[in-house]
Each structure stands twice: as C-alpha cells, then as structure tokens.
C-alpha cells in the first residue's frame, strides 16, 4: 500500500508539468498554430524561475516559488510571441520556427547562466515547492493517502486549469472562436472575427502555460536549472496532447499516464524483478511509450484541421 500510494503521488507530481504544458499546446493548436516550441518555452520558464528563486528565497520565504513560477509564465508568454510573430505574420513554417526556438532557449538560458553564475547552470536553491499534506482531505481513508498526502499544490493548479480549459472551449464565445480558427480560418475571417488575433491569443496562452509549467517542473523536481532540466518533457506534452485528442480531459488522462511512465525508472530499483534492468531502458521508456501511443491513436487522430497550415489572407 505504501509503495502504491507513493507511486500514485509521484506519478501525479511528474504529470503536473506535462498536463499544464499540454493544455498550453491545446490552446495553440486549437487556434491553428502548431507549437513545437513548447519544450523551449518550458526551458525559458524553468530558467527564469530557477534564477529568481536562489536570489530571493531568503527575503521572500514561502512565497518565492509562487512568484518564481509566475515570472516563468510571463517569460514563457513573451518568448512565445516570437513564435506567434514568425508563424502568423511572417508565415514561416511552424515546425521550423519551433525547432529554432527550442535551440535558442537552451542557448540563451545557459548563456545567461554563464553570465550570472559563471557556470553552465543556475545556483542551487535551498528549497523550491514543499510537499504538503492537504488539511482535512488527507484524512480521508485511501483517497487521502493517494491524492492528498505529500503532494505539491501545483498538481491541484493543473487540475483547476484542466477544468477551466474544458469550460472555456465548450461554453464561451472565446472558445468557439478559437476552435473555429483552427478548423476553418477563412470562415472565421468571413464573419468578421480576426483569425490573427485568435491565433496570437492561442499562442500567447500556450507560452504562459508552458512557462509556468517549466517553472513548476524545476521547482518540484530539481535543485537548480541545467540544460537538461526539461529533457524532452515539452515534447512528451505534445504527445499527451495528441494522445488526449486535443481535449482538456483527455490531456489530463494522457498526462497522468506519461507521468507514471516517467517515474518508472525511480521505482524499478525497489521492485526486485525490475532492478536488474538497466536504468537507461527506463529512461527511454516514456519516449518509446509515446511512439507506441501515437501509433495506436494514428487511425483516429482528430486534430484541428487547419493546424500547421499557412493561412494567407491575401490568397483567399
């Protein structure tokens, strides 16, 4: 029971950044822009949060990580605007733009680590987020053990974001227009709604969320930022988006699944049969599972129709 509850808890903790980033990807892709730069945006968010934390934690105490992830989100949002500008206004290939931004993120963040800290990583912080037993809820038998003990509050933030996203897409004016922009942009323009604005908004939200998620990831899973801090979680989030069929609840499920696959390596040591398998195999597991998941879902993929396509108003 102890093992199971810690597996569940840890899965959810590792799922948190995947869920939030995938939600970001959801906004972007639903608006019609493929955002492969999620990984890089997370890097930027993580770098900003991890730079802010050690420099301010003495003064700000318990509030530090929250302010740090907020700054991470803002930085991510700003950074994503490059992608928006390049792919919406300059009609660049969205995948190429995203690839460039992924590389640039590593370059810039480690470059400034060198400038600020004279090393290829940030200074270590004494503590990021703290695991908590949620009052009242943790007392519930079984459920309390699984979901409310030794948990980061950021997981509940991810849950909240799932609910809010599902609601926005289904019920609101903004959601309808966003989805329409990703399906049939010229129809949206012909009704006097600016596709450009919708897409900018979609990409910006994706940047805010991925930046936030990068901050959360580094402050819950590490003690400093390095070039390897995000190690492909942005791409796994992209896979979670596909796996979750561009739907907020689907993203939640897929996120938990991939979170679980991430912690396999940690627990394999404690399980006798698995202990003999080299750690590298478990490290590779989430990526292999992602490929398998994509293959399984390829037949029924239901992405936004116009996502990734150039949309040139003048060529109507």
């Amino acid at each position: 029971m102890n093992l199971i509850s810690s597996i569940v808890t840890l899965s959810l903790i590792y799922a948190t950044p995947i869920i939030i980033t995938a939600l970001g990807g959801l906004y972007s892709e639903r608006s019609g822009i493929v955002n492969i730069a999620l990984e890089g945006i997370m890097v930027i968010g993580a770098f900003v949060a991890a730079t802010f934390t050690p420099l301010n934690e003495a003064a700000l105490g318990g509030w530090t990580p929250w302010i740090a992830i907020l700054l991470g989100a803002l930085a991510g949002g700003l950074y994503s605007l490059i992608h928006a500008f390049v792919s919406i206004d300059l009609q660049a290939n969205q995948v190429i733009s995203g690839t460039a931004l992924n590389m640039l993120a590593i370059g810039i963040s480690v470059y400034f680590c060198q400038i600020f800290f004279n090393q290829q990583r940030t200074q270590t912080f004494s503590r990021g987020f703290v695991k908590t037993n949620v009052p009242l809820f943790s007392k519930i038998p079984i459920i309390g053990d699984l979901f409310f003990k030794r948990m980061y509050y950021t997981f509940y933030l991810a849950l909240l974001l799932v609910i809010v996203t599902a609601f926005i897409l289904r019920k609101t004016r903004f959601g309808l227009r966003l989805r329409a922009s990703g399906e049939h942009p010229s129809a949206v323009d012909s009704l006097g709604v600016s596709v450009r604005k919708m897409r900018y908004t979609g990409v910006l939200i994706s940047g805010l969320l991925a930046g936030l998620s990068g901050g959360i990831m580094v402050l819950t899973q590490a003690t400093q930022f390095t070039a390897g801090s995000i190690h492909g979680v942005g791409f796994i989030s992209l896979a979670a988006l596909i796996f979750g069929r561009w739907n907020a609840w689907g993203v939640l499920g897929a996120g938990v699944f991939f979170g679980f696959s991430q912690i396999f390596a940690i627990f394999s040591k404690d399980i006798p049969i698995l202990a003999k398998v080299p750690a590298e195999i478990f490290h590779a597991l989430p990526y292999i599972l992602t490929i398998i998941a994509i293959l399984l879902f390829s037949r029924r993929s239901a992405g936004p129709k116009a996502a990734g396509e150039l949309y040139d108003v003048s060529k109507r």
């Binding site: 660049a92 640039l104 810039i108």
Partner: peptide, 21 residues
C-alpha cells in the same frame, strides 16, 4: 560563453524560416 554559438545557430534557423517575411 560558448552558448553564443548555439544562439547564432538557432537565430539562423529562425531567420531562414522567416524567408517569406
């Protein structure tokens, strides 16, 4: 910092991608 070389590489990709622009 040697990362400036990575920054230049990434920027070149970005600007080539902007060729339409």
């Amino acid at each position: 910092p040697l990362e400036i070389a990575i920054i230049v590489s990434a920027l070149i990709i970005l600007f080539v991608a902007m060729k339409n622009g």
